[in-house]
Design a protein around this nucleic acid. Sequence first.
RNA 1: GGGAGUUUAGCUCAGUUGGUUUAGAGCAUCUGCCUUACAAGCAGAGGGUCACAGGUUCGAGCCCUGUAACUCCCACCA
Length: 871
Amino acid sequence: MELSKNFEPQAIENKWYQQWLDKGYFKSVPDERDAYTIVMPPPNVTGVLHMGHALNNTIQDILIRRARMEGKNACWVPGTDHASIATEAKVVGMLRERGITKSSLSREEFLSYAWEWKEKYGGIILQQLKKLGFSLDWDRTSFTMDKDYYASVIKVFVQLHDKGIIYRGKRMINWDTKALTALSDEEVIRKETKQKLYHLQYAIDGSDEKITIATVRPETIMGDSAIAVHPDDERYKHLHGKFAIVPLIDRLIPIITDDYVTMDFGTGALKVTPAHDMNDNMLGQKHGLEVIDIFNDDGTLGEAAQIYIGLDRFAARKKIVIELEEKNYLIKTEEYTSEVGYSERTDTVVEPRLSLQWWLSMKEISKPALKDVMEEEIKFYPAKFKNLYRHWMENIKDWCISRQLWWGHRIPAWYDGEGNYVVAETKEEAIEKFAEKNIKVNPENIKQDEDCLDTWFSSWLWPFEVFKGYSDPGNKEVKYYYPTNTLVTAPEIIFFWVARMIMAGEEFMKEKPFDAVYFTGIVRDKLGRKMSKSLGNSPDLLGLIGQYGADAVRFGVMISSPAGNDILFDEAALEQGRNFNNKMWNALKLVKMWEGRKANSNEPLANSFALQWFENRLNEVKKEVASMMQQFRLSEALKTIYSLIWDDFCSWYLEWVKPGFEQPIDAGIYKKTTEFFTELMQLLHPFMPFVTEEIYHLLDERNDDLCVKQLAETAAVDEALLQKGSLLKNIISGLRDIRNKQQLKPKETIELFIDAENKGVYDGIENLLSKQVNANSISFTNATVADAISAVIGKDKFYIKTEKPIDTANQKQDLEKELIHLKGFLTSVEKKLGNEKFVANAKPEVLALEQKKKADAETKIKVIEESLAAL
RNA sequence: GGGAGUUUAGCUCAGUUGGUUUAGAGCAUCUGCCUUACAAGCAGAGGGUCACAGGUUCGAGCCCUGUAACUCCCACCA
């Protein structure tokens, strides 16, 4: 069979993925093996595949494929999140394009559009994930609004309400004036924003005096309920208990004192607007102030504002500033920068306002979850996120879980129209509950809450509810798969999701949801900028897969992704992956070329060192990789395998066993070589599944699939043999360097003389040495060889005779350089050994090592000095 | 304002309880090679007072103190 010049990923990716699916390798059912379970963080149904998904899921696939090859029952569960607010925004946008407004639709009509949208676009991202070869158990695909899942979310709400953990309350919330919904604190992004600090004069009632306050929100003065000053502030002491007059609307407000006020900020006088500021609200409660909400839901000014009614808050600000200035209330404007909260979804400035919402009390429910992580029942990789987690958990606030949206799980609260409500799964149950409370209701008047739940109130159940652990407690599946093994996710959602999953796991399963959390970095461009639509630096992933191949993309994101660090994405890494594919492909071509030329040679031992050395090297790396995988050092594991294949296998081993041009290869060596190749492919397979599967099948067409080939036990490593290999490689490189410096062409042969300290070291490697440095003879000697280039490598002295005249100057320079280095080194070692305290305190093995270093350096110096003298 | 992290070669990073050369890798660079698997390649080389200043120690990239720069998280100074 003729193999193509280069590896062609496009030709084989679909073939293998289809075969893996057809053979059901990714399917998992409980059995007697150990489970290895990962639930995929469900992407939003609005999502399209981007680098973050590629990174995140490649890591999961590596862990899952490795576990599968280790003989575990690997189960990786896919799914999508309904993404309440994000999806609703998309659907509203789609409707707008069709000329339909949400307000013109009934809830049912809107939801049918939303479902239509979800059916059409919601599965795209999962289809895209298949292109990267991810070994997900597709039969288990879940959705946070599947019928059963939906029912569980409702049940959870009722259960927590009955337990008193969920309550309804009017409190300050973050209001999104565009999406027209409340947001949780986590959905508010604080950004430094340039603003203006306006100094406004309020007249004092019954006096000619004025008091000046500073504010960044002059449009809220109509909502003012007081002016607060510090009780000890001498400037204002005479005003305590007096009233000020709000400009433009001439309302009287009291001047109150509170030590919350900072005397040296602004003017030391603060306008208090309890309806539109978290702190002012706190002050308002303390002092029993009136709450005047001057805004409509959409951020325009309402009736209560009295002026500029219907105008947007920012437009109103401009107009009011002009009016205040005209009427001499504005006396100063300062540039001022502070943090302003923006909605994560709509990027509009969040309006703090008092609102009746549903809340989840976090205090008790968070305790076991904090313990899990602090006591390492759940291990975080990297561990630094433990601190972050602890800090958040210890300062946790109640979670606002209601959203004024339709796309999501509708809150199971029922109102009788008379100001009473109950929480129940169905209307029927609600009627019963009303009855229990002795509230007479007319079933016709009972209305369900219009709001739905925060998206995260459903996804926090994900690790067990994908196995129906809540709806069908103790079922076979949840018992087998839960707790899951590893969660792989971005640190950005540690509070949104990770923390809450742990709480839900402990609350509903009485058990942690996973053993370990691996936090990936954020994918940035090569300049370190976050990937974003506006910067246009987000690469077209499907395009890159087409261009470089899925394996190269997987290689590229993994090689530049050390655990816990952000990854700087650079297409060069993909090129490296593609080149790696070709390297392996070409090695395969070489081996396949030998296939027809096998012969039983009488002298297979001639090459036995190469075999033994590589076998040990392979075992050594297998052990290293196993240990790195355990510690989630995936990037390092990949680098190690890469170097094993490229350097040790291709550059050294294959060159050592390679027969001469058109010469036969020993059958035993051929067999061993294909075995090594197979093991390499197996080791690499979790990282690069397609190319390895393809090569594996081409190595031997009788092979079953690599995807499910079980890893064998690793044999012990012979250190001495590895050391001998290193020595041989050093000598070869050293002699090649000399050949380079003497400008010897590859074809020009040399005669090699070795003045060896111990000739035995060269047993079994002489022929490899002569082959690799193109020597037509090797002799051992104890005398100086005339007219030869000399070099010291290791502890031995080498003489090279060639046809060409020797460049002595060059050689002398090299030796002298080496001598200076060695002498410097020797001095440092001697200094150490001359230090009594070192000799007294250092561990014996350290001392012995230093003594050995000294002796070695001394011999080398001696040998080099001899060589120099002979020049 | 509080907290965490980072700072090692041109770039991206290893460096695991302080002791294996006078600090390693990949990429990039330079030199020589179209050598019969691979020029998307081969062979070789150069490149770092480990951010800075002190300290502890026989010995510090690693431990301690301080400084600087950058990054991230949290927080109610209008």
